[in-house]
Amino acid sequence: MTSPAVAPSTSPPPSPTTGLGNEVREGLRIVTPAALAALPMGLAFGVVVSQSPLAWWWGPVFATVIFAGSLEFLVLGMVVAVAPLAQIAATAFLVNFRHVFYALSFPLHRVHGRGAKVYSTFTLTDEAWALTTGPQAQRWSRRRILTIQAALQVMWVAAVTVGALVGTLIPDSVVGLDFAVTAFFLVLTIDAFRVRRSVPAPVIALLCALGSYLLFGDGMLVAAMTAFVAILLIQYALTRVKRRSAHA
């Protein structure tokens, strides 16, 4: 990831010809493909909620309050298994740790006002970051950025709600829809693999997962992820030492 140079926060406001309505319209134009792409996953999450022991309306509650796609799937499973809160917090931390990097390029300096900054960081999802990470976004108006983020949230909550309601109509003889979660993670794994194409990384992760499951059962997530990150850090330290001794 390259972090573009930080644009001065005193860059000129949008010219008078681009009115406030235009900024909203422009934001909606930018966000539409991403919002449509998130639709099936939202529907799938809603359906999974409706097939769980929880009432359907927990779907929109999860979607609005957590607003982090993959974590919602996981928290649902953990809540159904009545997992300890500390384990849920640790999982949220490890699964969403990637968001830490989004601060490197997200144009928060364009979003003025405390309330707006709170909302903007609260809704800084993968999609919101991906749409605002280009150099041109460093000069976008607050209204355009917030339009993009709000549209993504409204679309996600709507999709989850529809999925949760439609899901209650699915007959009991149809089973196995929860595989959508697995497929979703597999697809993201393949996409992440394409970044470095390093075979050992997923193999090591799989071994961490298997070992942690044998040791801890349903409480495996934190142990597996901690072990995997620890191995990455050791690997990082070793390559630094090697590089340093090569220079010596």
Binding site: L94, T182, R196, S198, P202, D218, L221, A224, V229, Y236
Partner: peptide, 24 residues
């Protein structure tokens, strides 16, 4: 240099673990 390294190498492993978890 640690941040970009983790950013590149963490997701594939974390996602593999999550995929395994859903099938446990």
């Amino acid at each position: 240099a640690l941040l970009p390294y983790l950013n590149e190498s963490m997701p594939v492993g974390v996602l593999t673990i999550l995929a395994f978890y859903t099938l446990r």
